[in-house]
């Protein structure tokens, strides 16, 4: 469970930064960039909050 959550969290972080590179190389529009970063933010925080409740700090 922890590993799955961790992977989903990384996906959230990837959605935060990768779109900016795609925008840099004209592979993504500004609207889609903003949408992807918003989704990345929601995913990262949601997963981080769930992880902090499910996974004891000692196993981090």
């Amino acid at each position: 469970m922890n590993t799955l959550l961790r992977i989903i969290g990384w996906v959230g972080l990837a959605l935060t930064v990768v779109p900016s590179f795609l925008f840099l190389f004209d592979a993504l529009s500004m609207e889609k960039l903003k949408l992807a970063m918003t989704i990345g933010m929601v995913v990262w925080f949601a997963v981080a909050i769930v992880r902090s409740r499910l996974v004891p700090a000692s196993s981090e």
């Binding site: 935060t16 930064v17 590179f21 925008f23 840099l24 970063m37 933010m41």
Partner: peptide, 10 residues
Amino acid sequence: VLVFLACGIV
């Protein structure tokens, strides 16, 4: 940190 980086790239 990643948002700062993305801001700079965009």
